[in-house]
């Protein structure tokens, strides 16, 4: 008998107490939890500005460096951030809007299928967009779409700049984020830089992923404007 038959047979014998007529959906699942929390709700209670504000606050709380700018300010800001970091090379995923990096000095390295992990290890910074950002938890989610690239490119370089378009890419909560995401795509949820709680259960930032995560919130109209 195959392992499959053994395991499925054991399961069916173990579940003899479950009536044959019971369908999976007959087991009730109460969904008495919020689609979005009141502090951040997209309804009357929370405006999109409040949502972007909460996202910025929660990102910063987990030591991501947050910048807010308008569409026109994006390119000069990215230039300043890469210069301040002293980056000589910046990794560019396929589909990144070319004008984002038009003002930057570092050498642009384009990620290709043949690019090895070792080659990525020698790049200083990476700039990407994202698929969605979650205000409640301070999370950005990448799905490998245009301007986001393969999962490894936001993992191996030590410096990741992620651009979020607000308000259209910002959702309030985890349930709202899952609704927007496609499970068939490889997804990476990122909440702050790489961290560990393994030494005395105290959080330390910076292990294997990028030790510096900068998130640029591009707002239209520009913040304060």
């Amino acid at each position: 008998m195959s392992g499959r038959e053994v395991v499925l047979g054991r399961i069916r014998r173990a579940l003899r107490d479950v009536p044959r007529s019971e369908a999976p959906d007959d087991v009730p699942v109460p969904r008495e939890y919020a689609r979005a929390h009141s502090s951040s709700g997209t309804g009357a209670a929370g405006t999109s500005e409040a949502l972007t504000g909460l996202l910025a606050e929660n990102l910063a709380d987990y030591r991501a460096v947050v910048h807010r700018t308008g569409t026109d300010g994006l390119s000069p800001l990215l230039c300043r951030l890469l210069a301040a970091r002293g980056s000589a090379t910046v990794l560019v995923p396929p589909g990144l809007p070319p004008h984002w990096l038009k003002a930057t000095d570092p050498v642009r390295i384009h990620d290709r299928a043949a690019t090895t992990a070792r080659e990525l290890d020698s790049v200083d910074s990476v700039v990407t967009g994202c698929a969605v950002a979650i205000a409640d938890t301070g999370t950005i989610v990448l799905d490998g779409g245009p301007g986001q690239g393969r999962r490894r490119i936001t993992l191996i370089p030590d410096h990741h700049i992620c651009v979020v378009r607000a308000p259209e890419q910002v959702v309030a909560s985890v349930p709202e984020a899952l609704e927007r995401l496609d499970p068939a795509r490889p997804l990476t949820w990122i909440s702050g830089p790489s961290a560990t709680s393994d030494i005395e259960l105290d959080r330390v930032e910076g292990v294997h992923g990028p030790r510096t995560l900068e998130v640029v919130l591009v707002e239209e109209p520009a913040p304060g404007g």
């Binding site: 987990y62 999962r151 909440s191 830089p193 790489s194």
Partner: peptide
Amino acid sequence: TAERMNPYTSMWT
């Protein structure tokens, strides 16, 4: 870990 969200979550199909 008492976090709103852990730093990394990977999902693949």
